[in-house]
Lab assay of single mutants.
Amino acid sequence: MASQGTKRSYEQMETDGERQNATEIRASVGKMIDGIGRFYIQMCTELKLSDYEGRLIQNSLTIERMVLSAFDERRNKYLEEHPSAGKDPKKTGGPIYKRVDRKWMRELVLYDKEEIRRIWRQANNGDDATAGLTHMMIWHSNLNDTTYQRTRALVRTGMDPRMCSLMQGSTLPRRSGAAGAAVKGVGTMVMELIRMIKRGINDRNFWRGENGRKTRSAYERMCNILKGKFQTAAQRAMMDQVRESRNPGNAEIEDLIFLARSALILRGSVAHKSCLPACVYGPAVASGYDFEKEGYSLVGIDPFKLLQNSQVYSLIRPNENPAHKSQLVWMACNSAAFEDLRVLSFIRGTKVSPRGKLSTRGVQIASNENMDAMESSTLELRSRYWAIRTRSGGNTNQQRASAGQISVQPAFSVQRNLPFDKPTIMAAFTGNTEGRTSDMRAEIIRMMEGAKPEEMSFQGRGVFELSDERAANPIVPSFDMSNEGSYFFGDNAEEYDN
């Protein structure tokens, strides 16, 4: 993207840094990872977990959730003011799984939030270390993106479920800051804005008074975040219109849905970061690795190297396929839920299948599930090659597409044709070009129609051997075009429920 120079890199967003050079960025990201790792080690000690239990991804998720809940100030305040039966607002906890007599047992633990905050700050040299908290939120978000298709949420806001490739980060909490905003897809931002506008339509006082002023500035800020994701002048001009509207209503909703559809071809720039579970960072720190000293990046080879040398386990339900569970977590670790499966298959070195073909449910185990038949197995999170994460949407291309997802959002900077089903997408653009945004709409449609099938995206960008740390010898991959490109292809993934 041309304006790259004016933006802070995501590592800076990730670490609240002012302008830093590459070495400083690597050190501050490393410091953040160190903090998460030290916190995780301490929690495993508190909970008396064995090494194996500490490497269980379900335990990692519970521990991450506990610290996120302990620092969720708004919710904590709300819980104190609106006490609900049987919930102690000062405590947080969740299921911890232990191996007892050759069987997995679930144990519900409860801790004072104050105590968890103390352990977290102690692991982070006394700081609140917001960057580390956001990092864990993005890992949870990436896992949700890989596990669930947001059909219901899309339909509720009037969008087409086939636009799911635009929904990265749709389950990120509001408090995820600049680093969170960077990884949100165009569809996620559109959905947040539509929800806001709908509230304004239904509630006369939404934009009024002292609160209304705050609401208005939040609305304009979200519009600017979305505008910054678009790469064409016409899309940005249309966002200006939406932002400046005196009284946002149905016309703005129409414009936003139009823009979301246009992003299936004229893709937005959305950041991709490899955020790993805390149970990967903990053992690495415990083994003596100093992330701050060595430096770390979320968008280069580092996460690949770390996963190459990590042992992570997962509980497996009786009829689940461990290899499929591994694929789910591998995609989440690489922030690749909406990437082209052919690119992923090449990088991973084994075939990556669409969601609907995987015999696996989510990673988390519900409290009512029976533990008797639970097994555990090693997650295979290694890769054959590594590639640089991208934040450009890439230019655009036609490809055989599917009944489910009709476009992709690249996660890796790797040369390819970008699949999208042009006739299906263009069919949504018939007729409606009147109104105050008509010239911009016409211009956007013209650009979409001009998108050429034979153009290559990320020209000359390749993948790298894991021994090639400096990215000196790019390998331009070859793809098996007979395979499906979309992950949520004609899909039956479970729906995400809060």
Rank of each mutant, 00 (worst) to 15 (best):
M189I: 08
L307W: 08
K293S: 04
R221Q: 12
E18W: 06
S376N: 03
Y219G: 08
L79G: 04
I425F: 05
S287E: 10
S9A: 15
N76F: 03
M374D: 10
L466D: 02
V190R: 04
I225V: 04
F39H: 06
P474L: 14
R391M: 08
L154M: 01
G37H: 08
S165Q: 06
V190S: 00
N432W: 00
A182S: 03
A131M: 08
T232N: 15
H140R: 09
L166T: 13
N125V: 02
M1P: 10
F412R: 03
Q399F: 15
V190W: 13
G30C: 07
Y111P: 08
E210S: 02
S376H: 05
F71H: 01
M159P: 02
G158L: 01
R317E: 11
Q241S: 02
N211V: 15
N483P: 12
N142V: 04
E107Y: 07
G249Y: 03
P423W: 05
D421V: 15
K227C: 04
F458W: 03
E115L: 08
D340E: 15
R317V: 07
S176Y: 05
W139A: 10
R461S: 13
V29L: 02
A22D: 04
G460V: 12
S376G: 08
K48L: 00
L266S: 14
I365D: 12
R267A: 08
L154W: 05
V463G: 13
G490P: 11
G54F: 07
A85C: 00
C279H: 12
G37F: 14
T23F: 06
A178R: 15
H135R: 09
R317P: 13
N21D: 04
I33N: 13
L466P: 01
M163C: 15
D491K: 06
D439M: 09
E192P: 08
S353E: 09
A428T: 15
T130W: 07
M222E: 12
R261A: 13
L226C: 11
H82Y: 06
F258Q: 07
T157L: 03
R99Y: 01
I475S: 05
G30E: 12
D145S: 10
I388K: 00
F458C: 04
K351H: 04
Q459M: 02
E455W: 12
K273C: 09
G362Q: 11
M481V: 13
A263K: 09
I265E: 12
A366T: 09
W386Q: 12
L315G: 03
R461D: 12
V299N: 10
R152Y: 11
G288H: 10
R470I: 11
N247Y: 07
F488H: 11
R261H: 08
E220V: 14
E443Q: 03
F71K: 10
G485M: 10
A284E: 09
R384D: 11
F346N: 04
A129E: 06
L315S: 02
Y313Q: 07
D491A: 15
L49D: 14
K305E: 06
A471C: 06
G35N: 08
V190L: 02
S165N: 08
A337P: 05
K293F: 10
D290F: 10
C223S: 13
A263V: 13
P277W: 10
A493N: 10
A22V: 12
D128Q: 12
S314Y: 08
A387T: 04
L466I: 07
D255T: 11
R99D: 04
T433M: 00
N142I: 13
R195T: 01
N492M: 12
E369G: 09
R65I: 02
R106F: 10
V29M: 07
I201G: 03
A373E: 01
P477F: 09
K77R: 06
I445H: 10
E107V: 14
I36N: 13
Y78D: 15
F258R: 04
T92V: 08
G209D: 14
M189H: 05
E24M: 00
E46D: 06
M448S: 12
T430L: 06
